[in-house]
Design a protein around this nucleic acid. Sequence first.
DNA 1: CTGAAAGCGCTAACAA
DNA 2: TTGTTAGCGCTTTCAG
Lengths: 337, 337
Amino acid sequence: MAVTIEDVARRAGVSRGTVSNVLNRPDVVSEATRARVLAAMSDLDFIPSQPARMLGGLRNRSIGLVMHDVGHPFFAEIARGVEDVTIRENYVLTLTSTRDDAERERSSLRLLIAQQVSGILLIPTASGAGEVQQVRERGVAAVLLDHEGGAGECSVAVDDIRGGIAATQHLLSLGHRRLAFVGGPGRGRQHSDRLSGMRSALTTAGGRVRPGVQVVTVPADTIACGEEAARSLLADSARRSRPTGILCGNDLLAVGLMRGLGSAGVSVPDDVAVVGYDDIELATLVGTPITSVRQPMYEMGHTAAELLVSEIRDRGHTHRNVRFVPELVVRDSTVRP
Amino acid sequence: MAVTIEDVARRAGVSRGTVSNVLNRPDVVSEATRARVLAAMSDLDFIPSQPARMLGGLRNRSIGLVMHDVGHPFFAEIARGVEDVTIRENYVLTLTSTRDDAERERSSLRLLIAQQVSGILLIPTASGAGEVQQVRERGVAAVLLDHEGGAGECSVAVDDIRGGIAATQHLLSLGHRRLAFVGGPGRGRQHSDRLSGMRSALTTAGGRVRPGVQVVTVPADTIACGEEAARSLLADSARRSRPTGILCGNDLLAVGLMRGLGSAGVSVPDDVAVVGYDDIELATLVGTPITSVRQPMYEMGHTAAELLVSEIRDRGHTHRNVRFVPELVVRDSTVRP
DNA sequence: CTGAAAGCGCTAACAA
DNA sequence: TTGTTAGCGCTTTCAG
């Protein structure tokens, strides 16, 4: 069995209570005995059992992050932002990926609650988001990420409608009149907001703008799906009615789409202009750097984690709904350099 | 306070022990009472406290993964492989990044032990690797990842020397005689093994091969460092003695290096051939797709996690040291298409 | 300032 | 089959 507080107490010639005190209220113990106890601890290489401490009433210094997929650069970057805070604040980070499955989201949340984490950061699945309330009812702090929350909670989000508008205005300003949106259910609310933004930019644009947008639905936010989208786009529409300006729901789709277009002999940006979304590093590295709507991923994770820590720790915490404003970054996929 | 086993027992009109039984040995409880207890649980939305269960002797269904950086594609992909196993086996994954700091590695390990995880996957820092022993001494299962282990332990690694050899032979076969290695301390053992492989390929190559390799040391495995390396490489060597074949310690360095070379007007692969390492997806997506030494990252994570689960669970577990063989993937950065 | 003792929520004998 | 009870390792009163 592992070395317990009892062993330390015996070796230091004190009681369990005293050892516990040097751990939790060092100032209450005399200099001399504290030194003795500390020595005993390090001699025995004592690591106090976290579960036992928690049963004893202490809060767990651990928080959970529930997201779609660590492998996706967008989420990975958010995770980095979160992690830098948890490290600084000495929390343990438990990661769970939902793969955008509501069922998995539920079970992840239960798992984290069972572990008695003191807080949860949740990037809701397309269907989810109502789950947070249940978490809070159990006294576990929670902040929503990449999803706008209500007044009674903290959240960190980005204005996706605005992002959609910015991208669309850019395409319109370049003279494109036949537009398309490539997106999927993968990140439900986000994609539909971006599309809404696109439509709203079109209606307010006035002039002889062709109403409506061709929407290509993809099953996932991946490069492969982007390539697939290119194929269906090229197959569907006659050359004359083919869209010349395309907004993708995220950068991976844009990368795939551009590949697909390229191998079909369609030139970007000469024949078709493509705008991505997120502005992951990859967008700058591909052959034709991609114009994209930048989301401050690292900062989102960082901010959300700080809000969570504050909610966990600060008595007088007031909820905040942080909303970042996305920013269009123009590159070669829409404007020839 | 949260709802406890006591509450469930009262509501179902049974004792705590019975509730515990339906949780842990359902077959021992009668059909009728089990149904009643289950109903009570779901009415109350009971989530058993994991810490309490652990104190009560149960093993924690959680494992820890200690790696350098979630944000790095190489590690992210390993994490995905691990995660798919933990999900399937119903384990919780606690992630910690060391940022290649031995101190952080130590504290991460302590944290995980304190949490009483039942197993740990460790990708050791450059300096570390001796730490695993301490983990095992505390009865926590552990498998080494990306690092060859001894007989008394499980490990999953890739033969980096062989990878270095393969890359070098490729460069030699293309006629390159002035070679360089761009690498850093970031992934210590890995990079030095790759360099060793390079040297060994040179010595065994025979012929009028220029002995030795120019080594450019970089502080980290990043694109920025790769660009920096290009600058120093171009500044250092006179045009005539400049290397024409370069192996990079990883793909990000190669991406950066190629950028740096490109902006200095050096053509890849015409003037210089570049080989990367890892074969992350990005290697295929950049303007000039990169020849790289492929490591099966997802599979490494997957395999390691399965070994760990087996070590945790199977009584008759026998240790295995899995060594993957890397594979050279030739692309445009060494051979013009 | 230190020691003794009562739990925390649950599991696992052991009885009934 | 079910109930009873003794811990698990620690924190936290409360006396001394």
